[in-house]
Structures are given as structure tokens and as C-alpha cells.
């Protein structure tokens, strides 16, 4: 039986599940669409990741991250629940020697993480606008009628990129339409979009930050060679895209779960069998005070296994487990 660690990253667009062995080797990885149904996505991810490994495994620790980290943690019984910034930082430190800057673009958010001496020293996350994220690119690709997978390749073919106003997603779109109507060809418009996104990212997040090499580019958008090229042009230096760039958050979780296991030597993992359980989510509004909190109740096979969403702790307090309190 092989010892391994499980990492789950439930993001807005994709849910990623990784199984890592004790020597930090990636045994299996799954990248699946969340599509607004995180419970289904986690189940599907677990099922697929299990089927990729033929030998018997023993899960010694589980970590979750992403915006759906608490939901996933409740389902699988996680030992570590961490934010995306820490998870991405830890993954990059372990997989790229001496990394000093991480550029991460996911579905709904983008971040820049600065590392010095092997630890995170500063970070920033997009606050106001989605013009620097994967969803924006997805949408524009759809509007141009190009599969998102080919988007980057097309940008590389551009001879004379057009300049597109990238400060706001809505205005970028109208500007793009305008450029289309003028008769610019698709490659140049796509390259212009990549440049605009990179410009927006560096202006918003990179402002005032010292971006030093080696620079790592990760997250789902890192698969886009067009964006990578635009970053390289803007920063004037080579940018590294790690082999598992799309699941770095989940890998970070595996690493933290391993660390936890070394310290505590126990796990609350509920087993792969949970994929057969039925989960229901019920929501109700608590009317005991004027806050009117929307409380979410998660039922596993008809049993309440967690509640959250309340400000005062009346609903979540009773069922809080130790892990959640520590995280």
C-alpha cells in the first residue's frame, strides 16, 4: 500500500484534485469544470483521481483550498483548510528553485505573490475588476468564435497587435468590437487583448512591487501561450510555466497536508467512499436579529454535517470541528 496525500482546489471555474506521493511526485491529477456545482465537481474529481491510480493507496492527509474550500473540507474531512495565496506560494516554492515572483491568473481572480528567502513576503489580489482574469478571456474567445485552447496560439501569429483599452472588462469588450468593425484581423485583436490583460494585471497588482526573477506563471490561464508571451514582453524577462501549472493550488494543499501529517500523524479523511453519499444543501434565513444571515446547511445522506453563513455563531458553533477553528 502506497502512502499519499490528497489536495483539492475548488475554484470558481475549475475544481482540481491531486494525489501526491511521499516523495512529492504527482501520482494523479484531475482538472474539471466546477460549473457552479461544487459538490458534484468534488465528487467527480475524487472519482476520476482514484481511477487514475491502479495500486492500493492510503491517504495520510487532505488539504483544501479555493473559494469552495470549506464546502470541500466538510465533504472529505480535510486536515488543512487554507487560502489560495498560501497554497499557490507553497507549491511554487517546492517546485521551482529560488522563485521570487508568482503571477497567478485563475477564473475569477488574479494574484501576484512575492517570495523572498523561500517564504511569501508580499501579495496582492485583484479587488475591483474582472478584466484581468480567465473568465474575461473565456468570454472574449466565445465572442470571437475561437476555442479558448487555440486562443494563445493565434496571438503568437500576430504581426501588428492593436491596442485595446483594458482597464474595464465592459469597456474592453466595446473597444474590441470597435476594432473588429474597423477591419483589424483576428490575430491582432487577440494579441491586443493579451497585452491589455497583462497591462491591467501589472498596473493593478504589480504597482509598486519589485518583480524579480525567477518568475513563475501559474493558474488555468498559464496554459495560454499568448498571455505568457505578453508577460515576457512587458517584463523583459523569461517566464516559467511549471508542468502542473493548472493544479498548483491543489499541489500546495498536498504539501501542507504532508506537513500536518508529519506534525500530528493523523487524518480526518473520510475515504473515497463519500462519492457515493448523497449531499443536499439547504438554505434558510435566520430571523433572530436584524442581520438576517443566510445560513447554509449541508446534509450528508439526510444528516446535518455542517452549517455556516451566520455572523453570531449560533448555527455554526455547535458543529464546528477542530480543523476549521485552527484554519
Amino acid at each position: 500500500m502506497k502512502n499519499c496525500y490528497l489536495g483539492i482546489d475548488v475554484g470558481s471555474v475549475s475544481t482540481n484534485v491531486v494525489l501526491m506521493d511521499e516523495d512529492k511526485g504527482i501520482m494523479a491529477k484531475v482538472y474539471t469544470q466546477t460549473q457552479g456545482k461544487p459538490i458534484e465537481a468534488v465528487k467527480r474529481g475524487l472519482k476520476e483521481v482514484r481511477s487514475q491510480v491502479s495500486e492500493e493507496v492510503r491517504v495520510r492527509g487532505v488539504g483544501t483550498t479555493g473559494s469552495g474550500r470549506h464546502l470541500a473540507a466538510m465533504m472529505v474531512g480535510a486536515d488543512v483548510i487554507k487560502n489560495e495565496i498560501t497554497a499557490h506560494g507553497i507549491a511554487a516554492i517546492n517546485f521551482v528553485d529560488g522563485v521570487k515572483t508568482i503571477l497567478e491568473i485563475g477564473g475569477q481572480d488574479s494574484k501576484i505573490i512575492l517570495l523572498r528567502d523561500g517564504i511569501i513576503s508580499d501579495f496582492a489580489m485583484n479587488t475591483v475588476c474582472a478584466a484581468g482574469t480567465g473568465s474575461f478571456l473565456d468570454r472574449q474567445a466565445a465572442r470571437l468564435g475561437i476555442p479558448i485552447e487555440d486562443f494563445g496560439e493565434m496571438a503568437l501569429k500576430s504581426q501588428a497587435p492593436v491596442r485595446i483599452a483594458g482597464r474595464c472588462a465592459v469597456f474592453a469588450e466595446s473597444d474590441m468590437i470597435h476594432k473588429q468593425q474597423l477591419g483589424h484581423n483576428q490575430e491582432d485583436i487577440i494579441k491586443g487583448l493579451c497585452d491589455a490583460l497583462v497591462r491591467n494585471f501589472l498596473n493593478n497588482l504589480g504597482k509598486g512591487k519589485e518583480i524579480l526573477g525567477p518568475i513563475v506563471f501559474q493558474g488555468g490561464v498559464a496554459a495560454n501561450v499568448g498571455i505568457k508571451k505578453s508577460f515576457e514582453e512587458a517584463l523583459g524577462t523569461a517566464i516559467l510555466v511549471p508542468p502542473h501549472h493548472d493544479v498548483m493550488g491543489a499541489i500546495g494543499c498536498c504539501l501542507m497536508a504532508q506537513e500536518y501529517d508529519m506534525k500530528k500523524n493523523r487524518t480526518s479523511f473520510k475515504g473515497f467512499d463519500i462519492v457515493h453519499s448523497g449531499y443536499q444543501v439547504k438554505g434558510f434565513e435566520c430571523n433572530d436579529c436584524s442581520n438576517g444571515c443566510e445560513v447554509i446547511e449541508i446534509l450528508r445522506d439526510g444528516q446535518v454535517s455542517a452549517r455556516w453563513g451566520d455572523k453570531c455563531g449560533k448555527w455554526n458553533g455547535k458543529l464546528k470541528n477542530e480543523v476549521e477553528k485552527l484554519a
Binding site: N83, I85, F123, A327
Partner: peptide, 11 residues
């Protein structure tokens, strides 16, 4: 806000 605070404390 929670994510930022948590990441900052980790740091």
C-alpha cells in the same frame, strides 16, 4: 477580505 487576512497571517 477573509482570504487576504488569512494569507497575511500565514505570511
Amino acid at each position: 477580505l477573509n482570504t487576504r487576512i488569512e494569507a497575511f497571517v500565514d505570511l
